[in-house]
Amino acid sequence: MTQQHHLRGVLLASSACILWGISGVAASTLFIANPHLTAMWLTQVRMISAGLILIIWGLIAGKRPFKIWRVRHDAWTVVSYGLLGLIPVQLCYFEAVRAGNAPVATIIQFLGPFIISIYYFLFKHVLPSRVEGLGMLMAFIGTVLIVTHGHLNSLAISPVVLFWGGLSAIGVATNTLIPRTLLPKYGALTVTGWGLLIAGVFLTALQPMWRVHLTLTWFQFGLLLVIILLGTVAPFLMFARSLSDILPTTASLMDAFEPLAATVFSIAFLNVQLTRFDFIGGLLVILAVMALSINPHRMFRYLRRRRTHTSS
């Protein structure tokens, strides 16, 4: 791995996370511009459009996306991934954005890795390390500051935002855990493409999108394209490509750019007002997730290999 490749991987992963953050701001702008727009409709359009693009892309790239349906267990797993992973991580996130704002919704969703740690503790009996324990404490304090603004006897944000944001954080966990056996066999392009399409079709079956009568201006249609192409398809492809140049732990550290981008762009373009408690709490959550993403033993082994390779 050359320094140039490492830099390319870091740039791709960080750019992908910035685009994910921008997509939340674009969705918030769209909800403000068109009050009749629902999170359900936006999620359906995003999932079906992006899913079809990724599957077609996989066909063109020779990934054979339909072979996943030949194994019954894998087929059921990708269906579970779409319904239990992608729906909460996307629909619930948009509901939180619509009820509140993109920065707070993104930071609450950013707690997903700690739900994964709790899952491993409760069901796999894996105790968290000291770093993970410290990270959980930091994330808890940060979340309390955001939710209460320092006044523990009252909530500073709507319970609706907290509810949808919490479900989206759970979605981050299921979105990570469910497809982990499929990714090495079929690749992220195939698994994510089918997961998005399945989730979008399922939501459309529950509430057909064509029954929602919406009139979009060209500006609103442009925002919709930003969410689908720049906020879903492009960052997914960029993040997947980055993993061939950098370690997954390094790529996961770039996730911090998502809430940062959502905050910066919301303040710049939507005039969202955040208090010092939001900034301090958000910073604590971001630092906590970064600490959780670092595996010290793996990092030291990697640095030793790099040092040995460089000296030889």
Rank of each mutant, 00 (worst) to 15 (best):
168 S>I: 03
132 E>W: 08
143 T>N: 06
197 L>P: 07
152 L>R: 10
225 L>I: 09
1 M>A: 15
14 S>E: 10
107 I>Q: 12
170 I>K: 01
204 T>G: 08
252 S>F: 11
30 L>W: 09
57 W>E: 00
241 R>S: 14
105 A>P: 02
188 A>C: 01
38 T>M: 07
177 L>S: 05
51 G>H: 10
128 P>R: 03
228 I>W: 08
107 I>W: 04
300 F>P: 00
127 L>T: 12
213 H>D: 14
160 V>F: 15
271 N>D: 13
131 V>T: 12
221 F>W: 12
149 H>N: 15
74 D>T: 07
203 L>N: 11
235 P>Y: 04
55 I>P: 04
217 T>L: 06
131 V>P: 00
239 F>T: 02
190 T>I: 08
132 E>Y: 03
210 W>G: 09
70 R>D: 15
145 L>K: 00
285 V>I: 15
147 V>C: 02
307 R>T: 01
98 R>P: 03
251 A>V: 05
191 V>K: 00
74 D>P: 04
66 F>E: 12
260 L>S: 08
61 A>T: 03
217 T>C: 07
65 P>E: 10
156 A>P: 04
252 S>Y: 06
66 F>S: 10
38 T>R: 03
221 F>K: 03
205 A>C: 15
151 H>C: 02
38 T>Q: 12
184 P>C: 10
